[in-house]
Design a protein around this nucleic acid. Structure first.
Lengths: 209, 209, 209, 209
DNA sequence: TATGAATGAGCCTTCATTCAT
DNA sequence: AATGAATGAAGGCTCATTCAT
């Protein structure tokens, strides 16, 4: 994944160490959100964190390791927020509604972080030029949607989906959520509730029997 | 838009000059598509084009002017491809189908260019950190969808749309198309026809009365 | 003066920082003195200082900030050297003699620095092509001469001077000093004492009643 | 003088060739006068001359050869203007007055050319970093003054001068003339006649017995 | 003779990274 | 655990020069 092998000896981190890393990651997120990935140099990040550049290098093996934390942290927070809400629902139709609602709410409440992740995903590459997080992260994000669709189909409340048509449906829902993010970036005063209602309607209709 | 005023005196370009510029733009597209926007330095582009770095500076005032050509050319080609096909349709429903079909076909046939534009859109910023093309380009792309939706509503074949719900619908369709692009990048052997059919189905259902 | 606003927040510099900057400025002076302003690239300066190019950028915001130090330091040193000597004199005639003597001595003892400043003055331009230091620095240098002339006239030991004829006289004295500098550059083994005596004689005669 | 040996086979130049070279030199003078030596690239000069950059390279072996013409042409014109006027005088005192007067007039009437020469003299270096024209040109310019001084001394109208005190006197006069040039650059609306009168007075007094 | 095109060296600057303290 | 200092590679750009046409 990275040029340098990640150290297998996952050092046990002290509490302070963890806190310091978290603080730096936080600053990295803010920086990316404000000036964009390309301008988010270690210098910029350090300045915002009011620490010296060296500190970052001290706590992270390299820039890459720091940047990796951003989607990791994001995914953790996202997972924690989304899943309990979905699992609290009984019907697939409700699950889908809640998936859309909770995603949009989560994005609305974590704008900086979301934006930083988007910046990263579209910028970070492996040595051979492939997009970095695309594959793995996306599967993790698509799977729950596909599961809901499958469940709904089995229960007879959704229309028929083949494996691949379920994937297209899942990708479209996912894209709609990402599209909302971009629109929110462009129009920060967007009426989130209305947008949510519309998306729910759209995907309610398009999954109905 | 740029710090340096764009020269209004569009110099008359010789045929050769035009061809050379086009060739360099082509190489820039390839380079961005392969290594990403951030890594697409003039050096990289020149290497791919097997010319010296200076040649690029000779034909373009600066990197910005070169990069600007990419979405400009893209939008021209897109417009030329999409619109006649839509206008050949009689019903809004057909128009929407053809919008989706022709977009996916166009993307499939211009993968590199599309990808390069996506990279650019998500990377290029103005001096104050705002995304560059977001606003203007997006309106140009969303408007035709909104027009189709409005038309379909007036003709009574689509459900009711308020101005803002039509916009959400349009954004969702647009997002679905962009989502296809990303998926195509990740899975180059994707069954494009099937994907197209599914998207048509999804948005047929979600716009229906 | 410069495109980038000069930071008003004069950062408190550590002793080491000051010393390093001074050392780099010193090397810049040497470099300009040896190869001329046009050839005095950061690379050249760094090579002479046996440091990497980056170090200069680390200590100075940009080349301009480094170069600005040269006349600033020069003027400080010049002022410190010249003025006490003039003020120690009682008569305007002695003041004029000492002005010439101390200037020539100062130049003789700071050949490189003087030369570097001359190079800068005749090379540095503002964006609109005007010579940079010409105006401001020159007034600061001419004024003391004009004051001596005025004083001598009031005391009746110098001939009459109008405001503008005093200026021509001052300019001529200043030019003679600068001319000495150039001659010293061309003939490093010049007899400075004799040259001084002659200049004193010339301007003694030409100011006499 | 130059890195590349000047071709010994001084090709006989056609009239047209001479005219073209003269035109280019003229443009080079204008360019230097307006934007300064450092900014006077072949591109700039070519643009002003409304010819292609290649033309310059075609007519001059390299930039250096072009630039060399500027002081050469200047010296020719200067010589042609100054000497007949001096030789028309009978007494050394008159000669000195006319030397100053005609120099200032010449400078006033050839501002651009004079300024371009100053820029060049202070910028052009040989490979070893020495100022280029300093030596040779200066002797040619100082000698006539020294001759006047010697003559005046022999005729008993000037005070005693040793060889080296005559040189200092000559240098001072020369410096005064150069100082006038700089002042003229800074204050284009200078009263040239008054300045001339003052200089004549100054050097009349300082050479008098 | 003149041109447009191309080259390649050099410039200033930014930045991730290293290291002694 | 943190810092300031230094490095060196790479970036975009300018420019004198070369060359085929």
């Amino acid at each position: 994944m990275s040029k340098k092998n990640k150290p297998t000896n996952q050092k046990v981190m002290s509490f302070i160490e963890k806190a310091r890393r978290a603080q730096i990651v936080e600053c990295a997120i803010e920086t990316i959100a404000e000036v964009g990935y390309a301008q988010a140099s270690l210098g910029q990040i350090a300045k915002r964190a009011k620490i010296s550049k060296g500190v970052i290098s001290y706590h992270f093996a390299n820039k890459e390791e720091l940047m990796e934390q951003i989607p990791i942290e994001y995914y953790k927070a996202w997972h924690t927020y989304i899943f309990p809400r979905i699992e609290a629902q009984k019907s697939p139709k409700e699950m889908l509604r809640v998936y859309i609602e909770s995603n949009l709410t989560f994005i609305d409440q974590n704008r900086q972080h979301v934006f930083a992740v988007i910046e990263m995903v579209s910028n970070t590459r492996t040595a051979d030029g492939k997009l970095q997080f695309a594959a793995e992260l996306d599967e993790a994000i698509l799977l729950p949607i596909e599961n809901i669709l499958t469940l709904g189909m089995q229960e007879g409340v959704f229309r028929e989906f083949t494996k691949s048509s379920a994937r297209v449906m899942a990708l479209t829902i996912r894209s709609a959520v990402d599209g909302f993010t971009l629109e929110l970036t462009r129009k920060p005063h967007l009426d989130v509730q209305e947008y949510t209602r519309e998306l729910v309607t759209i995907f309610d209709k398009s999954t109905k029997k």
